[in-house]
Simulated scan of single mutants.
Amino acid sequence: MGPFSDDATLVWVLLGLLSLIGLLLVRLSRQQPFPEPSFRYGATLLVIAALLAMGTAAPRPLGVDGLLALLSVLGAFGVLAGLTHIVRTRRDVIVAPLSGFLLCVGIGGLMARTWSSLSTAEQWVDFLALVLLGIGQTYLVFRGLLIGKLPLAWSQAGMVALQRGALSGERGAIACFERGWATDEPHLNPMAYLALQRIHAALDQPQQAGEWEASLVSSGGEGAVAPAWIEAVESAILHVVPDARQRWPNREEA
């Protein structure tokens, strides 16, 4: 395979795509409540891309067909793992749609390279498969990248930050709880509002605490929040600000 042949160029284009998806996953992982899934998968793709790039200098490097098959496998794995996070754990929304691009390129490329050798019926089957693949990828992009919100996961991340004692900062409890509410899941909103009210009150920030308390009242008040959640939030805050309780409302009187 000559250095300027079509296959050689295509190999580098595919390796560039693999690296780009890996970089996007690593970059966007910081915008997820739990960055570990997307960061780990993105780092794995970057390592694989680097190894394959070094392998192009080998006597028998991986060809285009092999690389397309590998992209299909990596994409399929990422889509399945990403869908698990979207539907079940609800901790990540970017692994599935970005992996879907690898799957589409891999399968589409393999079909394109064998298209001329297929019968008319087989070409129609491949065409329908590509249409279904495109519809599925459109759904993943829409569901994950465009409307994907993870209010429950952000509240969970906020609780983790509270237990670590990180109240402020980019990954602190305040930043997480501020993203822990959503209009389409109103039952989660009081949990975030109460946590924010307690944190700001503990930090002696009455204006912010009052704003979040008003939001809490408008969404049902403390009665809409499970007592176990209130106790967990207050207990975590008290480990950081021991005298915070005196600035909180008396729940027994309420």
Rank of each mutant, 00 (worst) to 15 (best):
L203T: 05
R91D: 13
G165K: 03
P249D: 01
L18R: 09
D126T: 04
R179K: 12
V13I: 15
S155A: 12
S168M: 10
L20W: 06
G16P: 03
R91C: 04
R179Q: 05
E253S: 09
L133G: 14
S119G: 15
L152V: 06
T138I: 11
T9F: 13
L110Y: 00
R179V: 07
A228E: 14
W12F: 13
D92L: 00
N250L: 09
S219Q: 07
F177S: 01
W124H: 10
D92N: 11
G220P: 01
I135C: 08
A96W: 05
Q137H: 11
S168V: 11
G148V: 06
R91M: 08
M54A: 15
N189K: 02
G55N: 15
Q197W: 11
L62R: 06
L98Y: 09
G144H: 02
V241I: 14
Q163T: 08
V160W: 12
A195W: 04
L128A: 12
S29C: 05
L196R: 07
T9E: 08
A157F: 02
D7C: 01
A153G: 10
Y41Q: 12
E122A: 15
Y139E: 11
S218A: 15
S168D: 13
A166M: 12
E185T: 14
A53T: 15
R251C: 05
V105M: 05
G148R: 03
A182Q: 09
L118V: 04
A96R: 06
A157M: 05
L14T: 09
L83R: 05
L51C: 13
Q197R: 15
L20I: 10
L162Y: 07
E222G: 08
A69G: 14
L118R: 15
L152A: 11
L133Y: 07
S119Y: 07
I86L: 15
F4G: 10
L83G: 00
V125C: 09
S235Y: 00
S215Q: 15
E222N: 07
G42F: 02
A244G: 02
W229F: 14
L150P: 05
L146P: 00
M54R: 15
R40P: 03
L140K: 08
A153Q: 00
W248P: 00
A43K: 06
I237E: 02
A69M: 13
V11N: 07
Q246F: 07
W12N: 10
L17R: 08
V64Q: 09
Y193T: 03
A244L: 03
A49F: 03
V217T: 13
T120H: 12
L67E: 02
E36K: 14
G66S: 06
G180C: 04
A49G: 03
A224E: 07
